[in-house]
Write a protein that binds this DNA or RNA. Sequence first.
DNA 1: AAGATCCACAACCGCGGAAAC
DNA 2: AGTTTCCGCGGTTGTGGATCT
Length: 332
Amino acid sequence: MGRPPCCDKEGVKKGPWTPEEDIILVSYIQEHGPGNWRAVPAKTGLSRCSKSCRLRWTNYLRPGIKRGNFTEQEEKMIIHLQDLLGNRWAAIASYLPQRTDNDIKNYWNTHLRKKLKKMQAGGEGGSFGEGFSASRQIPRGQWERRLQTDIQMAKRALSEALSPEKKPSCLSASNSNPSDSSSSFSSTKPTTTQSVCYASSADNIARMLKGWMKNPPKSSRTNSSMTQNSFNNLAGADTACSSGAKGPLSSAELSENNFESLFDFDQSLESSNSDQFSQSLSPEATVLQDESKPDINIAAEIMPFSLLEKWLLDEAGCQEKLVGCCGDAKFF
DNA sequence: AAGATCCACAACCGCGGAAAC
DNA sequence: AGTTTCCGCGGTTGTGGATCT
């Protein structure tokens, strides 16, 4: 009955990931795309649980991830979204495409919660003030707000899906702060295939290897950090690739091309980094780009792109609204 | 300088819904 | 239709580095 058994728990490695493991995992995903995590340990030979592989990929190895140094704008957005949605980190993360839910959750737990507490205790007056603390006092159940938010989002999505084509150029509204790449999106249509991302992973590996050779790992933890830093740069590669004029490549092409040029990665890609990237995607689009399974291409063939785009960009509309309200002095 | 404590973050765990058989 | 597993999510823990005493 049912599916074949999950990965046997014996002999499953735990703890920090090594660069070698990262490379193996990224190579595999580069070739096969994310998804079917159950098969990953078996096919890669990694002694890791499928869950662990997925987590590693989604939180650190996935293209387009920005880590550390949350900007004030991001902070505000997180606080506002947390206020609105509660601890639904995945939902919050979807509005901050370069951030992972885990990252946001950690940041909330370690920084923002204290910050807000402090502000509330100290009579506020901070940069993100009254709106949040006030709404926190509202006895209305959180579920109710969630529900309302969800309903609104669904409504918006539906109406936009049914309305004539809408350009998401509005998203640039959030670009007021050039340094804040994470909160900006652009009008580039999210029709880029996810294979671009996998290609970027190869670039990432290259970068990682470069760093690795320069700085031989000392401990698993530093390994891990180094790896993450290296992979963080992927955003740049990803951006450069995805926003480039190149058409979609097959994953085979990509793996060939990119692994060939593994050691030729140009630092300069980094500079073109997150601006372009962030300009190009709605949260959902990003999620799709980053995480989508290989079938997305097939889906795109089956479904008219306009429909897909609309669906992908629905959230962008919300984002615009959100950013607008986040930028509002009332909240901040 | 050494030990204690705090902090940040990566990773694990358990749960619930969805999907496969 | 019922059972089993997968997948994704949120909460929690463990660990190493930084700071304090």
